[in-house]
Design a protein around this nucleic acid. Structure first.
Lengths: 217, 217
DNA sequence: AAAGGTATGTTGTATTTACAACACGGGAGG
DNA sequence: CCTCCCGTGTTGTAAATACAACATACCTTT
């Protein structure tokens, strides 16, 4: 638990909170910890409205449809929360969470974290702001995905994504955090068609790439 | 201002807050009010990080690309907030806001609403939770849009949207809140192609519709 | 009632995509 | 070293879409 607590303290959710407040918050929230193997679907909290906080590893939020097409919504890496909006609104968004690699997850009750009684804890004020900031940040991430998905052609979707990556890295050379299949799922296009379009973009002198390493020309 | 205050009190953001707390909050937040005509683009707050709260009318959040294609993200109706995530994160999502009809908007400083000093107001605790809940709710709305957009064909996108509308109305008969062009922009497809697909759905006995009135068969 | 504007439906064609099947190469493990 | 597996690139074809142009219905205004 000591290693967990240390990891917990470094997350954005618990940022700017001192030792005493941290202990008090932790005692109140009493999160339970669980570990999941690569590829494992995380159990959806039924009765208790809980959200996840990734301590280590990574969790993919996605939605599979009946035909086998997968829509990759976002990746929650160490320090990120997930399922928090469903938990806070008590309304199901029906997103699946899958461990991308071996992942350690803290489950935090939304009733506690976003309920009125949290106010009885020291440091709750900063904690609540952190939570708000995390949810807001996630909304921006979703908006970005929507921007890419909203483009009409695969080429436009790819360029929108690549330019966005380039911007966030502050360089025209960068690595993307997705495999080809993941990127295709993220942009909601066919993988092989996307691969072909990547080739076409390189042939047209728009980009250079090898594996996950890209350069905008 | 009296009418505005009354409208303000009815919004979700100020729900569950009593008269005295309301006055104190309002005095602290000191929102400024503005009115916009149908079709008017709302000015983006540059220096002051502010978000909008719609008092009356409706505001469309969208993104136009160079080619003239419009991506309709969501509609903020009376009582809804918008641009709050950008304001909270102090990071621009570059979404445009357009008055769908004559709209009255309160501009609230995010530094005040989500900053530490809000804690000096009575009722801030409930207010903060309301704000958190509003942002979380919006994330779910975006997830829903992503679900529809993520489907591969126009037919699937339409059915995903219509089934979602049917669920939220609790009936297989319902009205949709979009014009054809708006719906096409929302689903990121071509309007005329979408119209054709609606006809095909009706021909195939999947749906009946007239104007905005739909029935799932 | 007439007229003009807007929203919606229709159709044909060029473009783009999905889909399927396969080729290729690198890495892991025996 | 060999083999298997997985990720990636390629290609051809059928299907779906965007696009443009036009037809029709509806609403508003005069």
């Amino acid at each position: 638990m000591n290693a967990d607590a240390a990891a917990l303290k470094k997350t954005r959710l618990f940022g700017g909170i001192n030792e005493r407040e941290f202990s008090e918050l932790l005692a109140y929230l009493a999160p339970r910890c669980a570990e999941y193997d690569r590829g494992e679907y995380l159990p959806k909290p039924e009765t208790t409205r809980a959200f996840g906080l990734v301590l280590s590893g990574a969790v993919l939020l996605l939605r599979d449809d009946r035909r086998g097409d997968r829509n990759l919504i976002l990746r929650a890496s160490a320090g990120d929360t997930f399922w928090e909006s469903q938990a806070i609104c008590q309304r199901c968004a029906d997103l699946d969470a899958v461990a991308e690699e071996k992942a350690r997850v803290f489950w935090i009750s939304a009733e506690k974290a976003a309920g009125p009684h949290i106010a009885e804890c020291a440091g709750y004020c900063r904690f609540t702001r952190n939570l708000l900031s995390a949810v807001a940040e996630k909304e921006l991430v979703l908006c970005e995905k929507i921007t890419h998905m909203g483009r009409r052609t695969t080429r436009q979707k790819l360029m929108s994504f690549l330019e966005s990556q380039s911007r966030s890295y502050g360089s025209r050379v960068f690595d993307i955090p997705f495999s080809r299949q993941q990127l295709a799922d993220y942009l909601s296009v066919d993988r092989s068609a996307m691969s072909a379009e990547l080739s076409a973009l390189a042939r047209d002198g728009m980009i250079k790439y090898e594996r996950s390493h890209f350069e905008l020309l």
